[in-house]
Simulated scan of single mutants.
Amino acid sequence: MSVDQYRNQVASIQKNIAKLQGDKSKKVEAAAKAGKRSSDAVASAARASSVSTAISKQKEAVRYADEQAKAQIEVGKIEKKIADEQNKIVTAQRRLDDEVAKERKRLDAAQTKRMKEEKKLLADQQRTAREQDRRMQNLGAGLSRHESLHAQTAIEIGRLKALPETITVVFFAADPGSNSVTKLALDEEARLIGERIRASEHRDSVVFHTRWAVRPRDVLQAINELQPSIVHFSGHGTDADMLVLQDDQGMEKHVTKEAIVSAMALGAESVKLVFFNTCFSFNQAQGCLKHVPATIGMNRDVGDLPARVFSAQFYSAIGFGLSIPKAFQQAKALVSMEVPGEEDIPELYLQDDLDENLLILVRPPSI
């Protein structure tokens, strides 16, 4: 349960205890009144001048004594219920405290990662600024500088020519055990990605494949078969770093971070990007970074709509020839406009000292 649900549970138990304590007070008061009336009746019987009056008062005393006993029994029952509720609130409060601690830990981890990324981004910006200053200082070098720029242009064109004429994206989807209420709109995500790729400038350079109800063996089969540049996972992830695929009976198959990293290592020769569009996938993305230049993961649970908006815009930008970092930022910008507050969930991880130009995947047809 969530923190709010645990808090509501504690509040509900506290309300029950307060009501029971009120009921107990009423019964204690009733017992006291009955006891006094019984005592008064006994005293009256002792003072009675006639036998009939004494017998009547004695019966009255017995009746009130019975009422007192019944009220005291009810008090005992209520005290037992109060004790049970107090045991419940101790358990509920402990679970609430545990969940609050877990949430704080998750938030601290996310903040630490954001600070690390911000620091890296600042370092990249400073390095870019220094490079720009150096280029400006060398503009007056005359013919030799012109020749150098010409050579650099030739190298850049050569690098672009070295890119494959087409890249392949394989879209792995798994949503085991879902029903009409819990079903993820993975088909809508795939449809929207394909639509945005077809609307991009270099649409013929991006080949989009889908694999549904994915089992672990399907991942390696598709990598061997398609030699993809981008591997994309959509579906479910857990806060225990598990990727949720499907087994042969259509049930959930939890794949560990280590296992998925190992699988990506086997496809590293062709794979340039692994995209986890699943909840709590940032550790999986970081693990795969040892084997591929770039990865994308989610730092917490992510909703169906922001996940779909982000991935569709990312592939649209790739289809227009943008680099992976620029496509990532553009996709985040669209999420910020479409689903405000969700844009900080995706995280991009790059291998150290990678030139952004090396992260352009699509070769312009004119080159």
Rank of each mutant, 00 (worst) to 15 (best):
197 I>V: 11
351 Q>N: 05
23 D>T: 08
108 D>W: 10
42 V>K: 12
140 G>A: 12
304 D>Y: 06
8 N>P: 05
308 R>F: 04
257 K>D: 13
129 A>I: 08
13 I>H: 00
74 E>T: 03
314 F>Q: 00
278 T>K: 05
219 V>H: 07
313 Q>K: 13
309 V>N: 02
271 V>I: 14
47 R>D: 07
50 S>F: 09
114 R>V: 15
340 P>F: 05
332 K>C: 10
230 I>Q: 10
321 G>D: 02
43 A>R: 14
225 E>T: 10
338 E>M: 08
121 L>Y: 11
102 K>V: 09
337 M>T: 15
354 L>N: 07
40 D>F: 07
329 Q>Y: 05
193 I>T: 05
127 R>I: 02
45 A>Q: 05
324 I>R: 02
12 S>N: 14
43 A>C: 06
245 L>N: 02
266 L>N: 13
278 T>W: 01
320 F>R: 14
23 D>K: 10
181 V>M: 07
56 S>R: 10
126 Q>E: 07
259 A>P: 03
126 Q>T: 09
323 S>P: 10
131 E>K: 11
257 K>W: 03
252 E>N: 11
226 L>G: 03
267 G>I: 14
7 R>L: 13
237 G>V: 03
278 T>I: 02
35 G>Y: 13
238 T>Q: 01
253 K>G: 09
241 D>R: 09
109 A>T: 07
104 R>Q: 14
68 Q>P: 04
161 K>M: 13
296 I>A: 01
226 L>T: 05
309 V>Y: 03
288 C>A: 02
192 L>P: 03
22 G>N: 04
112 T>S: 14
33 K>N: 09
210 T>W: 05
119 K>V: 08
180 S>M: 08
70 K>Y: 11
248 D>N: 08
201 E>R: 12
362 V>Q: 13
136 M>Q: 14
85 E>T: 00
111 Q>Y: 04
173 A>S: 12
48 A>T: 04
321 G>F: 01
13 I>Q: 00
112 T>A: 15
162 A>R: 05
142 G>R: 03
18 A>S: 03
138 N>A: 14
211 R>H: 11
362 V>H: 02
236 H>Y: 02
199 A>V: 03
208 F>M: 05
244 V>P: 04
322 L>K: 12
226 L>E: 13
241 D>T: 09
133 D>H: 10
90 V>F: 00
229 S>M: 06
60 E>Y: 03
230 I>L: 07
77 K>C: 02
327 A>Q: 05
333 A>W: 06
326 K>E: 15
59 K>Y: 13
25 S>T: 09
29 E>C: 09
103 E>G: 09
233 F>H: 01
181 V>T: 12
87 N>Y: 00
364 P>K: 02
8 N>H: 05
118 E>F: 06
131 E>L: 11
157 I>A: 10
44 S>W: 06
199 A>E: 13
15 K>A: 15
30 A>R: 04
149 L>A: 06
250 G>N: 12
195 E>H: 06
323 S>I: 07
30 A>V: 03
266 L>F: 10
82 I>E: 01
244 V>Q: 09
279 C>S: 15
365 P>D: 14
155 I>G: 07
83 A>C: 02
109 A>H: 11
